[in-house]
Amino acid sequence: MIKGRVSFNEDTCKGCGLCVSVCPVKILKLDTSRVNAIGYTPAFCFEPEKCIACSSCALICPDVVITVERLES
């Protein structure tokens, strides 16, 4: 099973939710409990251990917020 890790350049996220909509393992959501530096509710990964490094979120992110790593194992 391929494992991955997604990291968000949080302060450039505009909270559009496109990453959330395409994540096949449903581990992303918008953090509605706070706003980031530019006034949006940023996306984050709430179950990082489930990431499969598919890059879908990064591919559809319009603001190039997301970096994806593949964990070798």
Partner: peptide, 12 residues
Amino acid sequence: PFTYCPGCTHGI
């Protein structure tokens, strides 16, 4: 940073 509206696919 892009000045496009949130969710605008120009960024992609």
